[in-house]
C-alpha cells in the first residue's frame, strides 16, 4: 500500500499541491466515514467488557489518540531527517504541520487516559511509565512548536526545528528507557496492569476502525496544513516581489 503513494508527488511543492488537491476530498470522506462508524459501533454496539464494564469504551478514544501521538512524532522526526539530509522545503512544512496535530493527540491521550484510569485503577494520574512518557512527549511537542513560533526567519526556524526534532528523537528513546527504569525503582510492583486478555473481535474491530479513522484524520489535516504552508510561502514571495517591483 505504501508503494501506491507516488513519492515523487511529495518531492516538490508544485507536485504536492496537485496531488493533495486530488486526494483530499477522498481522504476527507474516508475520515468521516471511519470516525462515524467507529464511534457509533464503539458506543452502541460493542459489548461491555466483562471485567471493566462500560468504562472499557474509553479505549476507543484513548488508544487511537495515544497511537497517533507517537505516529505524528514519527512523521515529524522522519520529515526533519529528510530536511537535514536533502534540504527539502516540503519536508520542513510536513514537520511543522505535524507538530500541532501531534500535540492535540497527545493531549487527548493524556486526558482520556486519566478518565480511563480513575475507574480502572482508582486514580486520575499515575506516574506509570507510559503516561509519564506521554507527558514528556507533550512537552517535546510544545517546545518544538514554540521554537517555530519564536524564531522569526522561517528558514532558520526550519533548520533549528529539524535539529531539535532529531535530538528529541534520540532523547525520546533515552527517556522511555529511563522512565521504565525509574518506574521499577519506585513502584514495588503493586500496580497490576490488567493484561488485556485476547480481545474479542467485537471489540478490536471497532477499535481498529477508530484507529484508522484517527490516522486518516491526521493525514488529511496534515495535507491541509502543508497546503496552507505552501500558500504562505507563495504569499511571502509575491509580497517580496511586489515590494521590489
Amino acid at each position: 500500500m505504501i508503494a501506491m503513494v507516488p513519492f515523487s508527488a511529495l518531492a516538490n511543492p508544485h507536485r504536492f499541491m496537485s496531488f493533495s488537491d486530488r486526494m483530499l476530498p477522498w481522504m476527507g470522506w474516508l475520515t468521516a466515514l471511519l470516525l462515524v462508524t467507529g464511534f457509533i459501533w464503539g458506543l452502541f454496539f460493542a459489548p461491555p467488557d466483562y471485567q471493566m464494564g462500560e468504562s472499557a469504551r474509553i479505549m476507543f478514544v484513548h488508544v487511537p489518540s495515544a497511537w497517533l501521538s507517537m505516529f505524528a512524532y514519527a512523521v515529524l522526526a522522519g520529515a526533519s531527517l529528510m530536511s537535514l539530509i536533502w534540504r527539502h522545503n516540503l519536508a520542513d512544512m510536513a514537520a511543522k504541520s505535524a507538530a500541532p496535530l501531534g500535540a492535540a493527540f497527545t493531549f487527548l491521550g493524556l486526558v482520556t487516559g486519566a478518565l480511563w484510569g480513575q475507574p480502572m485503577w482508582g486514580t486520575f494520574w499515575e506516574w506509570d511509565a507510559r503516561p509519564t512518557s506521554m507527558l514528556v512527549l507533550f512537552f517535546i511537542y510544545l517546545g518544538y512548536i514554540a521554537l517555530w513560533e519564536t524564531i522569526e526567519d522561517q528558514q532558520k526556524a526550519a533548520r533549528a526545528a529539524a535539529i531539535l526534532a532529531i535530538v528529541g528523537s534520540i532523547n525520546a528513546v533515552i527517556v522511555k528507557f529511563s522512565v521504565d527504569w525509574w518506574n521499577t525503582l519506585h513502584q514495588p510492583a503493586s500496580l497490576s496492569r490488567l493484561d488485556a486478555p485476547a480481545m474479542h473481535w467485537s471489540f478490536w474491530v471497532p477499535l481498529l476502525i477508530c484507529a484508522l479513522g484517527y490516522t486518516m484524520l491526521f493525514l488529511t489535516l496534515l495535507f491541509v496544513r502543508m497546503r496552507t504552508e505552501v500558500m504562505r510561502n507563495r504569499i511571502r514571495r509575491l509580497r517580496m516581489k511586489q515590494v521590489g517591483a
Partner: peptide
C-alpha cells in the same frame, strides 16, 4: 453502567478537540 462521568467526558472532549483542530486548520 455507572461510568457515565468518565465515558461521556472522554468522548465529548475527544470529539471537541478533534473538531476544534479541524476547524482551526
Amino acid at each position: 453502567g455507572g461510568y457515565a462521568q468518565f465515558v461521556w467526558p472522554a468522548f465529548m472532549i475527544s470529539i471537541l478537540v478533534l473538531l476544534g483542530v479541524t476547524v482551526l486548520t
